[in-house]
Design a protein around this nucleic acid. Structure first.
Lengths: 341, 341
DNA sequence: CTGTTAGCGCGTTCAC
DNA sequence: GTGAACGCGCTAACAG
């Protein structure tokens, strides 16, 4: 498929050592030979065999990026940021998608280890952020594999970087309280999913502290897929319907737009809606969505940096970072209808 | 980081050959030793060094997938399909994102070649589907690197698989004609982008054949980013405004929703809108979008198969495939207002 | 059945 | 400045 360093040496009437020196821009070769060999390499389309090189160098300059779901645009955004940092430092990034499947996640970790990646950046699958779901990371830590989790550490003492969820979620709740909402509903919590659970916790904490009566009547429609659609719609059959909804992500919010409209509920006139995450369509739809958006740039930067530190010093104590989110007010949230209470 | 096959052999009081045999499930080892060695390998957390293995095997069981933009959900969809086919056959897939940048594309190709991928699946960057933009693929072909293009072959004789654009685009045009539209606008054509150019061609062909008067007054708002927004809006200041718009993809369509509404134009009452591609929000927004959706599943399947064939026989003549799209009628298209014509 | 050995392509001493 | 020789971890003959 491509010639080897040895063939090149033969063609250039020299030894592999010399060729290797010029290929790696190392000193100790006369300028003339250097130029000659470079020309020959170009001419014969020489392509170094990275495998052989890495095998002897025992350094891959390669990081693994394992993500719970590539369908999530945020993770792609992440990847771009991380990759450009890496490229700047001569690192390559291997991507893998676990498709929210722990088994696949483990499989990918194994594969990357076999490929001798220097370190791993992992968005653990969201299904199971319990300590059980994180047990396989313990193995990694024991084996001294440098890795950092993007998300919670599941109670273990791992390196991790994550978006701050509780405070940020509280901001959304406070926003609704300030607008005058008291009857609030939370939609799309996935039991067992740490991220949504924290968002819920952020809401309840603020409510309990700042408006106990609102906390008491907080409603929830949880579950997978779109199970919550009929439940949420049913709330609006009664006079004590919520005047504001907090959805666990933009997808959940958008999926409610049409069903609500069909039962005669208008946003934000009849109900306010606030959400999490950021997508290009968030401000294009009507009404545009008020959201709390994670600071991906900073999370990515810190994750990469943390991994570099870990690679440098495998013995240092693990550290965790929480990055605050940004609140963006848009059209979907407003004061409750006066006549409604 | 992990023990080697040699250390394992020493621990098990045997030779590397035997260990290698059990690790690869090859015959010629007594059941007892096999079990012993497997246990030991497990116990010591042995992880094979794929680099060393591939170096000697000269087979990576690894494909490269280079895509013009990972931000496009369709390409992720693709990746999933291709990857699952690959995994089923013991192949791994390396992803790379060229971010619509030819330079990056070349860089990634180089990297994958250096990693000795067995073959490449490439979505060329869309900016330049001219023959100049495809010249670097000629090098690949000359070097006998197995690769297949996802998209047009730019006039060269390469393997490629692509969504059929011209006929499919014609279906949208015909749909509008049948609804009674005659004043039609095309939005979002990127000059130099083969895909959008073909979609435009599909429209004009049908119009010229089936309604020459409509073809004559066909309008266009081309360009990058969102340049076309003010232009499209300005059309509606005059009585001869288009009654239907064909946008080059869902993003373009969605970006027009609000601006049109702001100038008092309602979809589909005042103007019908039809588009291309498929996104989860396409049927969730209001009004839901009538689109022509590419058959990704089939394209992915065929691309993978074509690559396998190419790897098997590097000398066979290249072949191209065009996969028809599916038309999906939704709410955004309807008959023109009677009073308008 | 089992062990010995020769490379795979490359970077790196260490002599010349 | 230059080249011969060794070893990275592994597979595949080949010989017992």
């Amino acid at each position: 498929m491509s010639i080897t360093i040895e063939e090149l040496a033969r063609i250039a009437n020299t030894s592999v050592a010399t060729v290797s020196r010029v290929l790696n821009n190392k000193p100790g070769v006369s300028e003339k030979r250097r130029a000659d060999i470079k020309k020959l390499a170009e001419q014969f389309g020489y392509s170094p065999n990275i495998l052989a090189r890495n095998l002897v160098m025992k350094k891959q300059h390669m990081l693994g990026y394992i993500v719970s779901s590539l369908s999530n645009p945020a993770y792609i955004d992440f990847f771009h940021r991380i990759e450009s940092s890496c490229r700047a430092q001569g690192y390559q990034v291997l991507i893998a998608d676990s498709e929210e499947n722990v088994k696949l996640e483990k499989q990918h970790i194994k594969a990357m280890l076999e490929h001798r990646a220097d370190g791993l950046l992992i968005f653990p699958v969201a299904d199971d952020h319990s300590s059980a779901g994180h047990r396989h990371f313990l193995d990694l830590q024991l084996r001294k594999v440098p890795f950092v989790l993007l998300g919670e550490s599941g109670g273990y003492n791992f390196d991790y970087v994550t978006s701050e969820e509780i405070e940020s979620s509280g901001v959304l709740a406070r926003h609704l309280l300030e607008l005058g909402h008291r009857r609030i509903g939370v939609v799309g919590v996935l039991p067992g999913n740490r991220c949504t659970e924290q968002r819920l916790e952020g809401v309840t904490r603020v409510l309990e502290r700042e408006s106990p009566e609102a906390a008491k009547i907080l409603r929830r429609a949880d579950g997978e897929k779109e199970d919550w659609i009929p439940e949420v719609c049913s709330w609006f059959k009664y006079p004590d319907a919520p005047t504001a909804l907090i959805t666990m992500n933009n997808g959940v919010a958008l999926r409610l737009y049409r069903p609500l409209e069909e039962v005669g509920i208008e946003i934000p006139r009849d109900v306010s809606m606030v959400s999490f995450e950021d997508d290009f369509w968030t401000e294009l739809i009507r009404p545009s969505l008020t959201t709390s958006v994670p600071n991906n740039a900073e999370v990515a930067r810190l994750a990469f940096e943390t991994l570099r530190e870990r690679i440098k010093d495998p013995e240092a104590p693990p550290i965790g970072h929480h990055i605050p989110q940004t609140f963006i007010r848009r059209e979907s949230s407003g004061p409750p209808r006066p006549e409604q209470k």
